[in-house]
Design a protein around this nucleic acid. Structure first.
Length: 497
RNA sequence: GGGCCGCUAGCUCAACUGGCAGAGCAGCAGACUCUUAAUCUGCGGGUUGAAGGUUCGAUUCCUUCGCGGCUCACCA
């Protein structure tokens, strides 16, 4: 028998022994008063004398994280995922039936304990136990108590073990929850209405990406998991919801990396009567509020990336895409003015020509190649080329460019926003151009969405829209360099066997 | 998909240039009435990711495969 099988058998035997002694091994409920974390926070300051005078009797549930036996007394740590509460058990002061439980307990078991709250001589807040309730058996051994679980593969595949043994991991997901909560609070306070739009699309749109394909049997039609909610949310602007947002999953059938998971969470919001400049101000405020909440949860004073502080002081820098290239590549602005000139730069630098091959594709690719990695503190990169921005409104003074920005922090694109194109005829023309690009081999060019154009024909108010990646925002605010560390169950290949 | 790296006991990790696979924690048995990584005594636990190959001998070298990490490509 292998060592693991032996441990499992031991634990099964103990469970059997308890059942034979008449102990319900999987009871249906447990009446409890406080969890360990709440006990710790409420009575952190109480002295031994105060607790004695109080004579507080509590029932506390949790997972057994440590057992320290010392002759006829047993110390036991009960954990609720955040904090532990120590149980102090005198074996001769609990009922015979509960002694059975104690004698058949293993690390990892779920247990309820009743008793009086005291402080030990060593000063540890503890429950002086007078009764135990068995709640569930851990048939498998927990990861080691001191080093926790280090194997990244197991941490991702068996996240329950990661959460149960690594406090840091729990903290990341608490922070993520605070980030989403703060986004909602901020937007709700400003009159934005939360909506849910379809995840299954006939025409995948609103972003440049390859979709997942699926099939509906009863209708016998192919459907696509959405790559963005954008076109539906803007239909809602037409419908008379001038401030609207959605926080939900997008799906993109592309490579996996430290910054990409096939399903990821996006906030998209649309703000009628505003343009992209107002949206920049709004975004600064929004992200600053979220950062503050994230720091509070983590008990940190500043946002850091790989230990290096990120300066979130406002106002944040704003650079046009051409200015960013000029600054970081040392290229004069005049050389960024034509496709021919850009192609010459690509040739000089040995850069591969981008898919699509237009002026805009080249400018965007050049920006990503030379500037992106330098953008550590928050910066808005603005004024993208029109041919890579088919849903954005052109600049009145230079229609080759659009009123758009991307927010970069720690070298990562966190948000993408623009003044929304609302002229149906221009939009129709942009869609046609995308189709042409598609026919020329650009697999990610947008599809023509006739109903969306029809919606614009009913008049969409001028508006600014913003899409912010929640996973990446969480990465930045928790100093995690892999997106898998901020997604509870990241996509992995299935396990062998 | 390409390149590089990793996979040893339940967990965390050792094992020199190819020469008897180890430690701590966890487990099992015992001692101990204020411990908190408790301590002390003793014991058990391995298809070294899988399959082949080279060799007197492979955790170690080679090949293929699996899974993971980083990175490039793609992208948000």
């Amino acid at each position: 028998m292998s060592e693991l099988d032996e441990q499992i058998q031991n634990r099964r035997d103990k469970r059997q022994a308890l059942a034979a002694a008449g102990v319900p091994v999987y009871p249906h409920r447990y009446e409890w008063d406080l969890e360990p974390t709440d006990v710790k926070t409420k009575y952190a300051a109480a002295t031994a004398e105060e607790l004695e005078a109080l004579g507080l009797r509590l029932r506390v549930p949790g997972r057994v994280k440590a057992i320290r036996q010392q002759g006829k007394i047993v110390f036991l740590d009960l954990h609720d995922g955040r904090e532990k509460l120590q149980l102090f058990i005198r074996k001769n002061q609990i009922p015979e039936a509960d002694l059975q439980i104690l004698d058949h307990l293993d690390l990892g078991d779920q247990l309820g304990a009743s008793g009086q709250l005291i402080r030990t001589r060593a000063g540890e807040l503890s429950l002086m136990v007078d009764g135990l309730t068995f709640l569930a058996k851990a048939l498998r051994p927990m990861p080691e108590k001191w080093h926790g679980l280090a194997d990244v593969e197991v941490r991702y595949r068996q996240r329950y073990l990661d959460l149960a043994s690594n406090e840091d991991s729990r903290k990341v997901f608490e922070t993520r929850a605070a980030i989403v909560r703060t986004l909602r609070t901020f937007l709700e306070a400003r009159g934005f209405l939360e909506v849910e739009t379809p995840m299954m699309h006939h025409i995948p749109g609103g972003a440049t990406a390859r979709p997942f394909k699926t099939h509906h049997n009863a209708l016998d039609i192919d459907l696509y998991l959405r790559i963005a909610p954008e076109l539906f949310l803007k239909r809602l602007l037409v419908g008379g919801i001038p401030r609207v947002y959605e926080i939900n999953r997008n799906f993109r059938n592309e490579g996996i990396s430290t910054r990409h998971n096939p399903e990821f969470t996006m906030l998209e919001f649309y703000w009628a009567y505003a343009d992209y400049r107002q949206m920049m101000d709004f975004t600064e405020e929004l992200i600053a509020a979220v950062a503050e909440a994230a720091l509070a949860v983590q008990g940190k004073a500043e946002v850091t990336w790989e230990g290096r502080p990120i300066n979130l002081a406002r106002p944040w820098a704003r650079l046009t895409m051409r200015e960013a290239i000029t600054r970081y590549a040392g290229l004069p602005d005049e050389r960024l003015d034509s496709l021919e000139s850009l192609q010459a730069i690509f040739a000089e630098r040995g850069l591969a020509a981008p898919a699509g091959g237009t002026y805009g594709h080249h400018l965007m690719a050049l920006f990503e190649a030379v500037a992106e990695e330098h953008l550590f503190d928050p910066v808005f990169i603005t004024d993208h080329p029109v041919d890579v921005s088919p849903l954005a409104k052109q600049r009145p003074d230079d229609p080759r460019f659009v009123e758009r920005f991307e927010l970069y922090i720690a070298g990562m694109e966190l948000a993408n926003a623009f003044s929304e194109l609302n002229d149906p005829d221009v939009q129709a023309e942009r869609f046609r151009q995308q189709l042409t690009a598609r026919e020329a081999g650009d697999a990610e060019a947008h599809l023509y969405d006739a109903d969306y154009v029809r919606a614009l024909e009913h008049a969409m108010p001028p508006a600014a829209g913003n899409g912010t990646g929640i996973d990446r925002l969480t990465m930045v605010l928790t100093d995690r360099q892999s997106i898998r560390d901020v997604i509870l169950f990241p996509l992995l290949r299935p396990e062998a066997d």
